[in-house]
Design a binder for these strands. Sequence first.
DNA 1: CGACGGCTTGAACTTTCTCAACTCACGTGG
DNA 2: CCACGTGAGTTGAGAAAGTTCAAGCCGTCG
Lengths: 248, 248
Amino acid sequence: MTLQDAKIGFKDCSDCPIRHRAVCARCETNELELLEKIKYYRSYEAGQTVVWSGDQMDFVASVVTGIAALTQTMEDGRTQMVGLLLPSDFVGRPGRNVAPYDVTATTNLMMCCFRKKPFEEMMQATPHIAQRLLEMTLDELDAAREWMLLLGRKTAREKIASLLMIIARREASLNVSADSDVRVFDLPLTREAMANYLGLTLETVSRQISALRKDGVIMLEGKRHVTVPDFQRLQDETGDDSDGGMLF
Amino acid sequence: MTLQDAKIGFKDCSDCPIRHRAVCARCETNELELLEKIKYYRSYEAGQTVVWSGDQMDFVASVVTGIAALTQTMEDGRTQMVGLLLPSDFVGRPGRNVAPYDVTATTNLMMCCFRKKPFEEMMQATPHIAQRLLEMTLDELDAAREWMLLLGRKTAREKIASLLMIIARREASLNVSADSDVRVFDLPLTREAMANYLGLTLETVSRQISALRKDGVIMLEGKRHVTVPDFQRLQDETGDDSDGGMLF
DNA sequence: CGACGGCTTGAACTTTCTCAACTCACGTGG
DNA sequence: CCACGTGAGTTGAGAAAGTTCAAGCCGTCG
């Protein structure tokens, strides 16, 4: 595992691109200073493993840039993705030493790591961190439950459409900049990774993407670059009801 | 929705059967006194709906006795269970007003409800509650991820075996009493509820249970009463590796 | 140039679903 | 007390969806 210190491209926490969404979102300036002391950056190349299931994990971390996947693998090799971590998402569980899942870098990845012991101590001292972590964990639980509906009850076509929606939406929420067109994006996952996300084989993924293309729901340039001419049309293909589960 | 006050069978929080596992587990005596003021019991009969998805939810609650299920339903009626709540499990999300899932009583059910507003205020004031809630939420997230592997990658037979293991284990952790034999238990779910848990049809559930019975993995008296002659044998049928995922 | 990884497509096969008939236990009302 | 309806569960046969195995394409990298 390569662990080179990264060129981070910003000076300190106050400049950090995930400052307002990560575990540290609620922290005051002085709390950030404490965090600065126990944090360090680490970067991984696409495909690298960050942690192996069963390994000791001496840190917790936030994804700063890039995408990571949590996966579980059965003895015979069947694997299921159980988490897709985007910038600001949190990895690791305070109070636990051993990683329960494989964590792999899906794209080039930079993480902001905190040594576990000091982080745990800080959590006791500063409720802002624990508060934010609870909020984030509840959000992840909701996402996991949405995902369970997808895995248990959706057809292959609905699964693909749903994944495209999820990626498009998350892409949109990251690029708040004006120039980004929500309807055009790159798939950050291989067909195999998509299959592992959706509980399908990669062949089925490929076939269903082709089918959506033939039916004009999406357009493809190359294998990864997707254009969605009509968002509502894609939404209809997901099987979800129209409001998209806005529940607040 | 019937909401009768229940015969609760114990005097106060300190006698409560879930005292040491629920959200209130970490609370001191004086904190419990505060909770007593905002709590009330509610009971439901098997089959009753506790909350409808989309409804206003003015309380959060702990399951005291019985079992409840969280389910999501698609427009065309396909439904997926996304949570199975046993005694001490928590329902509701502080900071959210609208229920994202249907909550139904699978068996007769008693819940210890807290009015949401005061509970939220108390969470701010007493870190013990938030701490415990974070811990419980992280546990639920782990369970959800285990469940995702089941939904995405296991065969029907493995799904059934896994569900039987889960029920047997949870049953065991509740009945710590000496006389209970782990290998004998009642299914608290109908075939249909099992199907919704596992992402199968009820016919497939029925067939696979019959198959496990024919193969001698389980024995049945009636439809619900299960005996597991050889636990290891059942474990082998789940597809999980032998240690059962003990990750601490 | 050749090899390789990522992807697509086809054909046969398997698993699970769908639809339908039937059993069984239970409770109700004639 | 029995006939009946009902809800839960079982079983079968055929259909559909997805998987498996196999072949081949395309772009990139050494």
